[in-house]
Simulated assay, not measured.
Amino acid sequence: MNMLVAETGQVLDTDGMPQGLNIRFLHSGNEMTEEEMTELSAGIAIEGLLAYRRAVGRRTNEIIASMEPGQFRQKVDAGRIKAVRDQGAVTEKAGWLTDYWSGKTIGGLMLMPASRHNFVHLNKAVRIKSKLKRRR
């Protein structure tokens, strides 16, 4: 949302977020290998992750509050998509994601990924949590 809508830096790039999260992956996470996901999951600092999630939520709310009604119908600026790619926020292997975003309006981005995206993964998270509880 920061790069594509507000044309500002990512929350991940502020206040030592990668160090607080204890991560080396600085991209969207799409197309990660199982080994990379295992590394990320094993090493991520949960308190840092919660702080990051809160900061992203606050920033997303600020961006939405700053929008003017007509802006929601605007297409995503191609230069902003390029900036996301150039920064490496989305890996080359996951280029389909920036292609997807390129076809969206600002309002479309507000719906997916900004708000609905969490729900896409909720069922899987519940299944993983259930499996982990059964192992104890």
Rank of each mutant, 00 (worst) to 15 (best):
M3W: 02
M1P: 08
V5L: 14
K104H: 09
L26I: 11
M110C: 07
K131Y: 03
G103R: 07
E36P: 11
R136C: 06
L49I: 12
D86L: 04
R134P: 02
V120Y: 06
G16S: 01
G108F: 03
Y52A: 07
H117N: 03
L21A: 09
L111F: 15
K124A: 09
D77Y: 13
P18H: 10
V90F: 09
T98Q: 05
V11K: 13
R24H: 15
I23T: 15
K75W: 14
R136G: 13
I81W: 10
N61T: 14
S115T: 07
I63Y: 09
K104W: 07
K133W: 03
L40N: 01
E36S: 13
R116E: 05
T14A: 14
E34R: 15
L132W: 12
E92T: 05
G29I: 10
R58W: 04
V76I: 15
I64L: 15
G20Y: 09
L4N: 04
R136K: 02
T33C: 08
V11C: 05
G29Y: 12
N118T: 07
M112L: 05
G16D: 04
P113L: 00
F72Q: 14
L40D: 00
G57I: 07
G79M: 04
K104C: 05
G43L: 05
K129V: 01
R54C: 02
I106R: 12
E31C: 11
L4Q: 02
I81N: 12
D15Y: 10
S28V: 02
G20M: 06
I106G: 07
E36W: 06
R134Q: 06
N30Q: 13
I44F: 06
R80I: 10
N30I: 13
G20P: 04
R136M: 06
E92V: 10
E47S: 13
L109K: 06
T38E: 10
L132D: 11
G88S: 11
T33P: 05
R136I: 04
E47L: 11
N30A: 14
L26F: 12
L12M: 13
R134L: 00
N30S: 14
L21T: 03
R116P: 05
I106E: 03
I81G: 01
E34Q: 10
L12V: 10
G79I: 04
G70L: 08
E39C: 04
R134G: 02
A125S: 04
G48V: 00
E62V: 06
A6Y: 02
T60P: 00
E47R: 15
L12P: 09
E34S: 13
F25R: 06
I63P: 04
V11R: 10
Y52W: 15
V11E: 08
H121I: 05
N2V: 07
E31S: 09
I81E: 10
V120G: 04
P18R: 08
S28L: 12
